[in-house]
Design a protein around this nucleic acid. Structure first.
Length: 793
DNA sequence: GAGTTTGAAACT
DNA sequence: CAGTTTCAAACTC
């Protein structure tokens, strides 16, 4: 009661200290008032009181929304929570970082202690989460679901989730400063009041969660809008409740205030101009860039994205992250994710191959999520990074364990932050969306490679800031130095970095490797009249949809590998093929499947039943299965060739593997389509797409986050059954992916599959599919991905 | 670097 | 579904 006013941030502290409540708390908490003030204390006290209330609140009974919420909650795994927390941390951290570096540093130390998660940056944000684990869990889950749901925009989702979470956190903090400050005790009261104000804090929460879910899954503009609109209130209430929980938190109050202000501001904005948002984006694009009419037309579909853009425009300056993140970030994230995700995914995909499949669809993509993480690396690393990082997420896990972990995390967080920053900056700077995206792209590429080198996100940020110019540069001349870089790195194509040389397809057809991989064309590309750029996102998405409608698996990884195969590969590239197979199979007639013309060979896998090749001599294994391993080249004639090939193979093959995966991953992340698809997925009915899920991409980006959250994307994917040669196996391979997507692309998809070969077999409905068990997710369309992610059930 | 070959993708 | 065309990568010189 004493402290009441938030305005005085400094004052409050003293007041708090003076206040009996504060003293009491201090006595309770191990931490001493002075420094502990900020975070840790908050944890101790707050948290729990309110949380229970939330869960217990009657709300649940009322709406199905709640039910969803509950579900999500149940589903949520601790691991997830942790991940979510991380994500949250990232975003918030970014903001905070900007605002308060010093605090961050301090917080970090604290966080580390308190938090297992190594979130260098977003300490403060993290803390709250910890405290409100339950709460956090709920939210995160919801978020996750959201993310998962819309495979379309994994990143966005993740971002959104982060944003929401972060928002919640930030707001909470702020509110705490404001509301709670009065007295730690008042927490509950304040929360209750707030709840009342908002309608019900918990309800609002539930709503949020539900909204989020809905929102995410569809990624539809409408849903998104609803989310946004609702969210504000809900968020407020939520935040308030949160705040109440954290009365003691003294996290930089100023920051919090700012955050709240931003949030509220954004909310207001949104509320005021919900419909406008979509428009704004288009406008921005139009005004800023030279969007194509097509793109614009599609804008509606992408409202979510645009919304974010709008947010930026309007609020951008004020609230870089809070709201923006949702819309803008997602976009940026997408692209990035695409790249990044691709990388990671691919590698991971090895495990299940399933991962590779990323379904464009939303949820299904969840599987991808993990991959996405990897992908993340990809982009940034540019090619090199991709190759290396491929598993950033994974690597993170692996690497991270050490001190590096923090770094890695930072990287990721940085990346996200950077993206956010980029977006923000771009928006603020009024740069055209394209530039932003591209900048992100570039930043990613640059950041990856460079980031790897540099621990500090700052550097990355710097690079990013520079990126825009580069982007323009590229666009104009495409000769930007980076291209060179990529080329250098890729050497030709390191997967993600694929460069295309399209002249007539405008990079909007599968002829274009970039497009096929779900990645935007970048500098290295020598394409002409390229439409596969962020600027033309709408067009790209639309085109993708068309292609997907034709062939749901069009963007799915072409080569599926079983976990075994992967292991084999690792040991001996030469052997692998057996486990892995090209989904469609090749149709070679003259190359004897001994040249890269052959997709099987190119993918480093042996030909399978699916192949209709003639005179198959695939070094990795013939259709007959006779030649499992290429190196030796069973066929004498080809021996020499084989040897050469082997020599080549191995090198490129390795690349291919990565590439393949990367491709998948790339496909996932890079192109926006992924997002969209997810939407489609929403309708499970839309089975078609989900299966393909190919596009996980988007999801993948999301996946990144999720993966982080999940902690083990790889694990998630159940090792696909080996398909050694059975077509079924292929099916299975796909299935896993599909499963991951959770959506049931099912038969339709397969049927549609170009090759048709595999089409039917398994189609068993996903329902039947084992993965389904994760079932809970099934509820949420988007959910699917989660399940896949989480190994467990 | 230009031209040819190849097979996937797209189209009919 | 099959046949044809288009396309861009892969390959060769």
């Amino acid at each position: 009661m004493d402290t009441p006013e938030r305005n005085q941030i400094a004052a409050p502290i003293s007041k708090f200290e003076d206040s009996p409540v504060f003293n009491y708390i201090n006595s309770l908490s191990p931490i001493k008032p002075v420094k502990s003030i900020r975070i840790t204390q908050a944890f101790s006290s707050l948290t729990f009181g309110s949380l229970p209330s939330i869960f217990t609140s009657p709300h649940v009974s009322s709406s199905h929304k709640e039910s969803r919420f509950l579900r999500s909650h149940q589903d949520s795994d601790p691991s997830n929570i942790g991940t979510s927390c991380k994500d949250e941390n990232k975003i918030p951290t970014a903001e905070r970082d900007v605002s308060d570096v010093a605090q961050l540093a301090e917080n970090e130390s604290e966080l580390q202690e308190n938090f297992d998660i190594l979130v260098p940056i977003g300490e403060s944000s993290v803390e709250p989460l910890d405290e409100h684990q339950e709460f956090a869990l709920d939210l995160p889950q919801s978020l996750k679901y959201d993310c998962g749901s819309p495979n379309s925009d994994p990143t966005p989702c993740s971002i959104a989730a982060d944003c929401t979470v972060s928002k919640s956190d930030a707001p909470v903090v702020e509110k705490n400063s404001q509301i709670d400050l009065p007295d730690g005790r008042s927490h509950q009261e304040g929360t209750s009041q707030q709840k009342n104000d908002t309608g019900c804090g918990w309800e609002s929460l539930a709503l949020e969660s539900t909204d989020l879910l809905i929102f995410s899954s569809p990624n539809d503009a409408a849903a998104f809008r609803g989310l946004i609109q609702r969210s504000p209130d809900v968020e407020v209430g939520y935040f308030t409740s949160m705040v109440s929980n954290f009365p003691e938190n003294e996290v930089s109050e100023e920051l919090k205030k700012q955050l709240l202000y931003q949030l509220t501001f954004n909310e207001q904005h949104e509320a005021e101009e919900p419909s406008c948002q979509p428009v704004d984006p288009s406008e921005q694009k139009d005004t800023n860039t030279l969007p194509n009419g097509v793109a614009i037309s599609n804008l509606d579909n992408h409202t979510g994205t645009y919304l974010s853009v709008n947010m930026d425009n309007e609020v951008g300056a004020h609230i870089p992250f809070a709201n923006k993140p949702i819309s803008d970030l997602p976009r940026g994230m997408r692209r990035r994710c695409l790249d990044f995700e691709m990388v990671g995914t691919q590698q991971k995909s090895l495990d299940g191959g399933s991962g590779g499949i990323s379904s464009p669809l939303l949820k299904s993509d969840e599987n991808d999520i993990p991959k996405n993480k990897q992908l993340v690396v990809v982009k940034g690393g540019g090619d090199s990074s991709r190759c290396i990082v491929p598993g950033i997420g994974l690597h993170l896990n692996a690497l991270t364990s050490t001190t590096k972990d923090s770094r890695i995390v930072k990287h990721e967080s940085l990346l996200s932050d950077v993206q956010a920053l980029n977006v923000h900056m771009s928006t603020t700077s009024l740069q055209s969306p394209l530039t932003n995206q591209e900048s992100l792209h570039k930043s990613l590429t640059l950041s990856n490679a460079e980031e790897m080198d540099h621990d500090n996100g700052l550097q990355v940020a710097e690079e990013v800031s520079q990126a825009p110019t580069d982007l323009n540069y590229e666009e104009n001349g495409q000769t930007s130095p980076r291209k060179k870089r990529r080329r250098m790195e890729n050497g030709g194509e390191s997967e993600t970095c694929k460069r295309c040389n399209c002249k007539k397809s405008k990079c909007l057809k599968l002829y274009c490797e970039c497009f096929a991989a779900g990645v935007y064309c970048i500098e290295p590309c020598a394409c002409q009249d390229c439409f596969n750029k962020p600027i033309h996102e709408d067009t790209v998405l639309a085109t993708r949809k068309q292609i997907e409608s034709r062939n749901p698996l069009a963007f799915a990884p072409k080569v599926i590998r079983s976990s075994e195969s992967a292991s084999e590969y690792g040991e001996d590239s030469s052997k692998t093929p057996a486990s892995a197979r090209h989904k469609r199979g090749c149709n070679c007639k003259k190359s004897s499947c001994l040249k890269k013309y052959c997709e099987c060979y190119q993918g480093g896998v042996g030909c399978s039943i699916n192949c209709r090749c003639e005179g198959c001599k695939n070094a990795f294994g013939t259709k007959d299965g006779s030649a499992l391993r290429g190196p030796d080249c069973e066929e004498e004639e080809e021996t020499e060739k084989c040897e050469k090939n082997k020599a080549e193979k191995i090198p490129w093959k390795m690349e291919n593997e990565n590439n393949d995966e990367l491709n998948l991953a790339s496909a996932l992340p890079s192109t926006p389509s992924g997002f969209r698809r997810p939407l489609v997925q929403l309708a499970f009915p839309s089975k078609l797409k989900q299966p393909r899920s190919s596009f996980v991409t988007i999801g993948s980006s999301y996946a990144l986050h999720s993966s982080q959250k999940m902690g083990k994307p790889d694990l998630l994917l159940p090792p696909p059954p080996k398909f050694e040669k059975l077509p079924l196996t292929n099916m299975e391979d796909e299935i896993p992916e599909i499963l991951c997507s959770s959506s049931t692309p099912t038969a339709s998809i397969k049927s549609t599959s170009p090759n048709s070969k595999r089409v039917s077999p398994p189609h068993s409905d996903f329902g039947t599919s084992p993965n389904l068990r994760s079932g809970r997710r099934l509820i949420l369309q988007s959910i699917p991905s989660f399940p896949s992610l989480t190994p467990q059930h």
